[in-house]
Simulated scan of single mutants.
Amino acid sequence: MKDLRQADNPSVKPSAHPTVKTPLTGILIANLGTPEGTDYWSMRRYLNEFLSDRRVIDLPRWKWQPILQGIILTKRPFSSGANYKTIWNEEKGESPLMTITRDQTAALREKAQAEWGDRVMVDFCMRYGKPSTSEVLDRMVKAGCRRIVFLPLYPQYAGATSATANDQLFRALMEQTWQPAVRTAEPYFDRPDYIDALAASVERKLEGKVPAKLVASYHGMPQRYLMQGDPYHCQCQKTSRLLRERLGWPEGVIDTTFQSVFGREEWLKPYTVDHVADLARQGHTDIAVISPAFAADCIETLEEINGEIRESFEHAGGETFTYIPCLNDDPAHIDVMMNVIRDNLGGWV
């Protein structure tokens, strides 16, 4: 028993014992990721990591990698880089997703330190690109984090988003000699505070009016994933329904659609780009679009929705297209994140 007591008591450690940090609790938020620049090689590195993820493209490697390396990564970095250039934060030399995620982290850090002081450490990582999950986890462990709450910034769960973020965390844990205890947060798509924050953003942007159509555009995924048991489609539908009920709007005002289709197989429908054109042809020339699946504005919202999807609507005769920004670092959104974190910190601080 004496030896055990000595091992647990910093004051009686052997002189050659490695330094033991004061135990901290870590809060680590994770987003999708971003290229480091808009040039060809930055885009190629990012797209290669993203499109090589088996959670994103689940084709056998022998079939997919020759297509990816020989065809897609030869051409797509040019077009993707051009798209990123239209939204790039030139002042900070980074994408809006990076800027917003950093701002979210700063806001969470301020609130967490006000509530728990120096007992907590708040940081962020990206599933693809930098800062990587592995490097940030390693930094937190070296700082003394013995417990970590991991919050993927995806309101709805999907294998290609929440699950792959968790996968990367677990892979990073395998590199640690002394692994911290970890809690992964559940999706928050139906939390009342999240729905309230969404509704407030709609009311603020539309100034209280009820539109003929509000299109809730979610990131798409292959229809096959739904049939394999992925709950994403159902959670998106529930988010739209709860948002409509919270706003007090009649049925039929909010349409749930899916964007960012990739490849030839059938994805979740209706496709946003086609649906907004159909609405215009049906006489709905004044619509609004919101993206409840994204915690931060990014290439899919700032360029795809305000570019390709807006153009599809206008070319079909649409007149007024109102994009409602993501919740980003809105105080109500930060409060939602803090509430999720508090729920997962139970008994730890």
Rank of each mutant, 00 (worst) to 15 (best):
G347L: 09
A165T: 09
K13N: 11
M227T: 10
I309W: 01
V20I: 12
T22L: 11
L24H: 10
I57L: 05
F313K: 03
D330T: 07
I299V: 14
P96V: 10
A165G: 06
N83A: 15
L137V: 08
P331D: 08
Y188M: 09
A199G: 08
K205Q: 10
S201D: 08
D343Y: 08
V120T: 09
Q104Y: 07
W267A: 06
A216E: 02
P23H: 05
F294T: 00
P231Y: 07
A172P: 00
R5F: 08
K209S: 13
L206E: 07
P77L: 02
L51K: 01
L59I: 04
T256R: 02
G159N: 14
A143M: 09
M98R: 12
T74K: 15
T161Y: 03
I148R: 00
P270M: 06
L345M: 14
T320L: 07
A30I: 14
R191G: 07
A212H: 12
Q179F: 11
I87E: 06
E245S: 13
Y40F: 15
G33V: 00
C145H: 03
G347A: 11
W41I: 08
R241D: 11
A200C: 08
P152M: 01
A316F: 08
E266W: 07
D53M: 05
V289Y: 02
G307I: 02
G248W: 07
W116V: 07
P14N: 13
D330A: 11
T184F: 13
W267G: 06
W249H: 10
D255A: 14
E91K: 14
P131K: 03
A316I: 04
G208D: 05
V253G: 08
L108W: 00
A293T: 06
M1S: 13
V182N: 10
K75G: 13
T301V: 04
V120K: 03
L327I: 11
Q235Y: 05
A295H: 00
N9C: 13
L59S: 12
L97M: 12
L32Y: 11
P180M: 09
K92E: 15
R204N: 11
G263W: 05
D53Y: 01
N339M: 13
P14L: 13
S52E: 06
M140E: 01
P250K: 05
S312G: 12
E94W: 06
I27A: 01
N31V: 00
K75N: 15
P222S: 02
G346R: 14
S42N: 13
N344A: 09
Q223E: 11
I27K: 03
T133C: 08
E36A: 14
G248Q: 03
K75S: 15
T86I: 07
I324F: 05
C125I: 01
L32W: 10
L153E: 06
Q223L: 11
F189P: 00
F124R: 02
